[in-house]
Amino acid sequence: MQPNKQDVSRRTFLASAAALGVTCQFFAPNAFASRGPILKRSIPSTGETIPVIGMGTWITFNVGKNEALRAKRLKVLQTFFDEGGAMIDSSPMYGSSEEVVGYCLRRMPNKPSLFSATKVWTVSQWLGIRQMKKSEALWGLDRFDLMQIHNLLDWQAHLETLKEWKTQGRVRYVGITTSHGRRHDDVERVMAKEPIDFVQLTYNILDRAAEKRLLPAAAEHGRAVIVNRPFRRGALFDRFDRHPLPEWAPEIDCTNWAQFFLKFAISHPAVTCAIPATSQVAHMRENMGAAYGRLPDAKMRKRMITFVENL
């Protein structure tokens, strides 16, 4: 059988790494401690810190009742926790994702770092309460760490509930989300006027509209920022994966494109964490690698943008 490109590059890398005496450090399980501590950012409203890389579940965890696919997702989730991950983000909009996350969590003896985040996505306060209770049951949790109002759908009604729930301790944090770059005016207005803790928005090396107003507004009002679509739903890999990383990528401790894109997203000063989604253990390890080592500074971020825009 002819080795594929990935095998060759991995073998080449292993040989090079062995020569440098770093192989075991890099690939041994739970060896991330040698890479330094996992990078964390604080949630402005409380000062609690969370790892800069979380996990999204859009598409990847929507596998229905298929036991074989569920078992694979269980390994992905276990790898996430093994690598130091905490935040899992989902939504009732994602089909069976919440149910599958709950299925995996129930089969994990050790998940001390879990930071559970989901969304409410329906109209009316009554339906919202019903949906949030259903999400708690699907995940197998008594309460969520973070409940977000998905794409601001009927946000006034749900925010009223969530304010009350937060007071009662039924949820720890409240947030809002947007995607596709939609409704930025509304998001900015809610961030300014309402007592929310988190805002989730789309931000990646090519989609940087949030830099203009939303990210500065989040910093100004003390809101934690979750970045969704840090890989532009995989499109960044389609476009750039065939190119080699820049020779200066080791300066920011990047060994693959996933880390390059993630480190760009999480290095924005206003960003708290990014939530890439994957269905593969190997990709989860790559993603979590972005939560260790050096991050680009402002000058390096400009260099990264220039590099990808010229490819």
Binding site: I59, N62, V63, G64, N66, L69, M93, G95, S97
Partner: peptide, 9 residues
């Protein structure tokens, strides 16, 4: 929100 593999399943 799903892949072809999941749809087929």
């Amino acid at each position: 929100p799903f892949t072809k593999e999941v749809y087929d399943s």
